[in-house]
Amino acid sequence: MRYEFLSVGSGDAGKMQELTEINSAVRVRRVRAADISHVIALDTRVTKIAKAEYWNDIFRRYGKQRNSERFFLVAEGRAEGAGPGFLGFIIGEVRAWEFGSSPCGWVFALSVEPKARLHGIGSALLEAISAEFRKAGVGKMRTMVARDGRLPLLFFRSEGMIAGPYIQLEKDLD
């Protein structure tokens, strides 16, 4: 079964608005303090590196500040089979003039509970953050994926994302 996307509650983290529901098993909403332990647990399971301090800092910066251009969204299950509870998250922000680029939306974290994958939750999260970016007035969304990251590459491609006009470069600093 696939989940329908429903609109993200606007307003800041402390003052959640009631969400409109469209007959769905999953809802996407802004992050709350109580979600962070789930974010840390999921990320630790997936990446095998525990980084609680990093996530707490991300929550302070992306969950509580400048909410009109920073989006830390969480997917939550409501029906049997899907949850209930925490299913995944996505984080992004509007960035302007980096590398000479006009304002665009950057997605820099996305993760779905392994057991809940392939049910449209990643899609719903990406759609939700796209809607937020559009509301913030940007018309382009970007992200970066490891070249050998087959799963996220397949996912982002299936969502219609294509190679962007920038090439990432690096160098060993010896």
Binding site: D148, L154, S158
Partner: peptide
């Protein structure tokens, strides 16, 4: 990486 990230379904969508 590019060829490996585009499924037949994604091609169809494109």
């Amino acid at each position: 990486a590019t060829l490996g990230s585009i499924t037949i379904a994604t091609m169809r969508k494109l």
